[in-house]
Design a protein around this nucleic acid. Sequence first.
DNA 1: TGTACATCAGTGAACGCGCGTTCACTGATGTAC
DNA 2: TGTACATCAGTGAACGCGCGTTCACTGATGTAC
Lengths: 190, 190
Amino acid sequence: MARYSKEHKEATRQRIIETAGHRFKQDGIDGSGVATLMADAGLTNGAFYAHFTSKDDLVARVVADQLRTQAETFSTLPPGRAGLEEFLRDYLSPQHRDHPGAGCASAALLDEIGRCATATKHAYTDGARAIVDEIAARLAPDDPQSAYGKALGLFTMAVGTLQLSRALSDPKLADEVLEQGIQNALTFLR
Amino acid sequence: MARYSKEHKEATRQRIIETAGHRFKQDGIDGSGVATLMADAGLTNGAFYAHFTSKDDLVARVVADQLRTQAETFSTLPPGRAGLEEFLRDYLSPQHRDHPGAGCASAALLDEIGRCATATKHAYTDGARAIVDEIAARLAPDDPQSAYGKALGLFTMAVGTLQLSRALSDPKLADEVLEQGIQNALTFLR
DNA sequence: TGTACATCAGTGAACGCGCGTTCACTGATGTAC
DNA sequence: TGTACATCAGTGAACGCGCGTTCACTGATGTAC
């Protein structure tokens, strides 16, 4: 009956979602056309609508995928606050700043997500909650709820700092902003 | 010789810059077409190139104008830290969140500015420096330089918090994020 | 004061192009016999 | 084992539309005489 293996189409779909994530973070959502997104995945534009009902549909799935993946990376870190500090130094590194396509979706797309359709904002809301939960669990393993506010502060400061560093044309200032961001975040967590 | 008063064309140009600022902050830079921008200013698309060499040119001027205007609003606040606290409560209000067109350019456009041409990033860099200077001067009137890092922290946290609140589809959580953002910023400044 | 006219801000149609989306089709797949 | 064929993932041309930009033009302005 099924002439192709069940996994084949699903794998293609997942590949589109992942390459689109990279492209969106690099060129913006509005800045990435469907034909380009499909070419990135090694396909042509026509196949797009066999996988997604619309570009908006893809955007919502990409946002969900990006944030889920990011939340999962927390499990690879050292336990507790030490892991958080490692995450922070990596997050606010020139390497991360200079490669948005491979980096954090929030830093690359947050204001654009604010202008997206409801489905995308739903996906973002769920994903962001999971990430802030991960942070809170590391700040106060015994009572994560109590650290939720502080986790939000760390999250927003990190995202804002990376965005600012990317928007500056003065490389020296851009580097200082990252370093100062690490100091500020560590001070804030104390 | 000059058949129209000197001020007339300059006033029109300034009007385009201001209405474009509102439109960009509401719909994004990529999301705002030249024809729409000119209609917002009560003109037709053709007149655009009598005022600006390209859309990129306009974008850079709008960014410069937006940040200059924002820096100027600091002078209307009560002196010292009290003014900063008033600013913060206004900045992280549902009113500001729900009217991006009338609000902060950084919160509405920061990640898109990071993808813009050099001229726009230059304009942003100059403008952001002035705003952070204003904040630092209020934190440490006698030695603003020492407070520059802390001013950056306040700035990035405020921008990140407003962006996050705008991207959330859950109104209750979005409100909590704003309130928590105020608390976190005040804690951070202490 | 009245009229002719040079100026130039603004008009609106048109350019080629890429957008999101549709659709008739191709051709590799792997099952049926 | 070999062949016929139903399936369906993917192709690529085409749709109308809005994009940024250009340009021949209009018509209000206010100076010159």
